[in-house]
Design a protein around this nucleic acid. Sequence first.
RNA 1: CCGGAUGGCUGGGCGACCGCUGGCGCCGCGAGAGAUCGCGGUUCUGGAGGAAAGUCCGGGCUCCACGGAAAUACGGUGCCGGCUAACGACCGGCGUGCGCAAGCACAGGGAAAGUGCCACAGAAAACAAACCGCCAGCCCGGUUUCGGCCCGUCUGGCAAGGGUGAAACGGUGGGGUAAGAGCCCACCGCGCUUCCAGCAAUGGCGGCGGCACGGCAAACCCCACCGGGAGCAAGGCCGAAUAGGGAGGGCCGCCACGGCGCUUCGGCGCUGGUGGCAGGGGCAUUUCCGCCCCGUCCUCCGGGUUGGCCGCGCGAAGCCUGCGGCAACGCAGGCUCCAGAGGAAUGGUCGCACACGGUUCUUCGGGACCAGGACAGAACCCGGCUUACAGGCCAUCCGGUAUC
Length: 112
Amino acid sequence: MLGRLKRRAEFVRAAKAGRKAARDTLVLQALPRTDDETRLGFTATKKIGNAVARNRAKRRLRAAARLHLTAHPAPGHDLVLIARDSTGSCPFPALMADLQSALRKAGVPPQR
RNA sequence: CCGGAUGGCUGGGCGACCGCUGGCGCCGCGAGAGAUCGCGGUUCUGGAGGAAAGUCCGGGCUCCACGGAAAUACGGUGCCGGCUAACGACCGGCGUGCGCAAGCACAGGGAAAGUGCCACAGAAAACAAACCGCCAGCCCGGUUUCGGCCCGUCUGGCAAGGGUGAAACGGUGGGGUAAGAGCCCACCGCGCUUCCAGCAAUGGCGGCGGCACGGCAAACCCCACCGGGAGCAAGGCCGAAUAGGGAGGGCCGCCACGGCGCUUCGGCGCUGGUGGCAGGGGCAUUUCCGCCCCGUCCUCCGGGUUGGCCGCGCGAAGCCUGCGGCAACGCAGGCUCCAGAGGAAUGGUCGCACACGGUUCUUCGGGACCAGGACAGAACCCGGCUUACAGGCCAUCCGGUAUC
């Protein structure tokens, strides 16, 4: 599968230097890389709710990212997806639409 | 049938496709002499809870400390008897209180070892006392129809009645009395006690005592029993490169200071601890000047960063049956293997039935549409407790009603 962001420092770098795009159901941070690899990170804060709600939000983000990036790969970026209040409860097509829109806004092109 | 009490079970179901993660096997690639290891793919297969939660008790396990025992301090527990690896849990029994009942609740040892506290109110809050009262006497005063009656003061007797309080030195009834009082009597309560039942807590019959010993120990305290500390970020193993630490050995100049040893006190020997000169290296190259760095080589040891591996899933395990026990629980036999991640695995889409909620139609049988699954996610494990929880199911019991 695609690579993952695991270290706090990697998340901080994406937050400070990456391009951001906020939607109703998610927030995207995208940081270009020097190589062609794509790495993903997921964040759900305590504000989202208890452990069940946070895990569910992250799983839905992961499922949406997997579906979208297998159809439209975006090599050469570190992508961080941050859950919002509605991430766990919104209709899944809305989540997909927000992800696609956010990627375009952040200037992550689908592969030519 | 209605209302209620207690205990237990369940915790959305079935199916399809695409993914995630652990494991056995197979295939491919790479490393290696090999054992094997790493990466990728794939068939099959396992994959959250009754509370996984809070982290409140008790244990296992690990490390640290510790000669044994006792005592003190500190903390905890506290009716009795069981059960258990252990517990403050659980089971059975007792007592007290509540309820028509089934049942429920209880931090439920000791108050004649000592200290302390008992607010407000009230006369009085602890070796009792007397505010309003009740009674008698005196005859002092007032009053008088001169018999007395009433009021006040004083002296004495009393604690029934009033009033305060969470609590007032037993309660109810009768006798008794100037008025009263366990002063006397009956019953109740209380205390002591023979006997009986029980392992015991405790209970019962009887006797004795005229009643004293108020409450608070979740105030100190006393008594009995229990307890070493920290926690899987425990703890163990592996561990590259650079710099740095320690030990031993080989090699290389000089001087001074310091240190150590010996000393006939003149010195002598050892010494990379410090400084200088020399030497080496660097600042692209050569000369000079300047600046910076430095004993060198070999072997071994220790610590150990990022990280990797183990601990980490056969257990006080689960299910079924039988036996013992009122029960908690124990014993025996058989069967089963049931998550092990590490930014952390269960998600997405769809179909069919099912509860619950809302809107609406209705021929009251039901139909249509919309929304949408309670509380909540393993992080070393186990026994409990506590807290959260939509809906559904089962069993036993109590009260009422109806029928026979």
